[in-house]
Design a binder for these strands. Structure first.
Lengths: 225, 225
DNA sequence: GAAAAGAATTGATATATATCAATGTATTAT
DNA sequence: ATAATACATTGATATATATCAATTCTTTTC
C-alpha cells in the first residue's frame, strides 16, 4: 500500500543523531497507516505501544475531559508524537485525531527506547524535543491566565496562519468548536469575536475560509491580550 | 560552611542510575549555597549555568510576566530543578524564590550533560522526570480551562496539605497573593473564597495558619470545579 | 512606643464570558 | 427532491470574577 518511510526527507531534528545502521533498524520496525479526516489515530487512555511520526497530513492533539476538550496543538508532516506515558505507564495522555487525510508511521516503542539506550546523542535530542513542548506549555499556561478572548483567538489565528497553513489565506477543516477548544472559549464566543475582527477589517472569513487582512493589528491584539 | 552533598540521603529518582564513580564526580563538581526566605535562587531570563538540587527548605517556582506572576509549584528537599533552557538556549524560563531558609546545591550543567552522554539510563530517568512535569502541566492547563475559583483554590489547599506540608494543619509563609498566583485568581478573590470555606467549616485559617477540617468536601469541590 | 509600611479584609461596581434558546444555513442520506 | 442531521449564527440573560477604593490589621523601623 505504501512504500517504506526513509525518515530523511525531511528528517525531523530528533532523528538527526541516528546513523545509517540505526535508520535501517528504524525502517524495518515501523509501518504506515492511512487515516481519513475525522478518524482517531490514538485515543487518550489507551496503551502507548508506538511512537507516531506523521508522514503526511495534519491532526489535532486533544486533552480530553468529561466536560471539556482542549485542542493543544496541530501536528503535521514530519512531526513526531511522544507522550509523557513513554517509559512510564505506557498510556496515552491525549488523543490525536486527523483533521484531513493523514498518513502516520508507527514506530515500536521498544525500538525507540533501545535507540535512547544505545545512542546518547539521540537521548539528548529527545530531551531537547520534550523541552520545546515544555516551553509551549508554559506559553499556554501564561496565555490562559493573562489573555482575554480577543488575545487568545488572535493567537489561534496567527498560529494557524504562520505555523500550520503557512499562508495569510487558508481553508481549514477545523470547526468553530475546534477553534473554541483551541482558544479556551465557547463556540458562540468564537463566532462573535470573529465577527468583531471582521467588522474591524482585521480578518475576513466565510465558512472555513480565512484571510488575515491586518496581521500587525492581530499581533497587537495577541500581545495586549 | 556546609559539608559535601552526598546525593544519597534521600536520593532523588534521577540520581538512582548514577554509579559510585559518577556520584563522586558529582560531589566534586557541586557546591551549596544558603538562601534566606524571600531570596531569589535564580531569575527568569538569566543564564542557566547550574542545575539546582534543593538539600533543605522550600522555594516557589514562578513564571513571570509584565502584568502577572504564575506560581507553578513549590520545590522542596531533594527536588532537582531542570528547566527547558538546558542544552538549548541555556536560559532560565522561570524564577525560583525561597519561601523559607533554603540550602541549594549547584551542579555544573556541563557535568550534568556529560552524565547524560555517558550513562543512558541516567538519560532515560531524566526523560521520565521531565515527562512527570509534562503531566502536571497538562493538569494545570485542564484546571485553568475547566475549574472555577472554588475548585482551583481547593486544589491549591490540597496540594499544600498533601504534597508540601504533609499535614492537615500547616503554617505557611505564602501570602494571600502567593495563593492567588498559585490558583490564578486575585488576592481579593482568594480572601473571599477562603472566608466561604471557613463559613462552611471546610477549613479554618487565621493569618498564615491553615487547618483542613473537611478534606472530603474539599476534594469534592476540587473535582466539581 | 509611635510612626510607617506592608498585608489582609470588606464592600460596591464593572466587565468579560458562559449559558440558554431560537433560528438559519449547509451537508448528508433516503 | 425532501427529510434529517449537523453546524453556524444571533440575541437575551445570567454569572463568575476582576477592579477600585476604603478600612483594618500586622509587622517593621526609628
Amino acid at each position: 500500500m505504501t512504500g517504506q518511510v526513509d525518515f530523511c526527507t525531511p528528517k525531523p531534528a530528533v532523528f538527526h543523531s541516528l546513523n545509517e545502521e540505526e535508520l535501517t533498524i528504524l525502517r524495518k520496525n515501523s509501518f504506515e497507516v492511512d487515516f481519513k479526516e475525522g478518524e482517531t489515530i490514538f485515543k487518550q487512555g489507551s496503551p502507548l505501544t508506538h511512537i507516531i511520526y506523521l508522514t503526511e497530513g495534519k491532526a489535532k492533539l486533544l486533552l480530553e475531559n468529561s466536560n471539556q476538550t482542549i485542542l493543544m496543538k496541530i501536528v503535521q508532516e514530519s512531526d513526531i508524537i511522544i507522550g509523557p506515558g513513554f517509559n512510564r505507564d505506557y498510556r496515552h495522555y491525549f488523543s490525536v485525531v486527523a483533521i484531513q487525510d493523514t498518513r502516520a508511521c508507527f514506530i515500536n516503542v521498544d525500538i525507540f527506547k533501545q535507540f535512547i539506550e544505545l545512542n546518547t546523542s539521540f537521548a539528548l535530542s529527545l530531551i531537547d524535543f520534550i523541552h520545546e513542548d515544555t516551553v509551549s506549555h508554559f506559553d499556554k499556561i501564561k496565555n490562559l491566565t493573562n489573555k482575554h478572548m480577543n488575545g487568545r483567538l488572535a493567537d489561534t489565528l496567527l498560529y494557524l496562519s504562520d505555523d500550520i497553513y503557512k499562508s495569510h489565506e487558508f481553508l481549514t477543516s477545523l470547526s468553530r468548536m475546534d477553534l473554541a477548544n483551541m482558544s479556551s472559549m465557547t463556540k458562540e464566543s468564537v463566532i462573535r469575536t470573529l465577527k468583531n475582527f471582521k467588522e474591524d477589517h482585521i480578518i475576513d472569513c466565510k465558512g472555513n475560509e480565512f484571510k488575515i487582512l491586518n496581521k500587525e493589528v492581530l499581533i497587537d491584539i495577541s500581545k495586549k491580550g
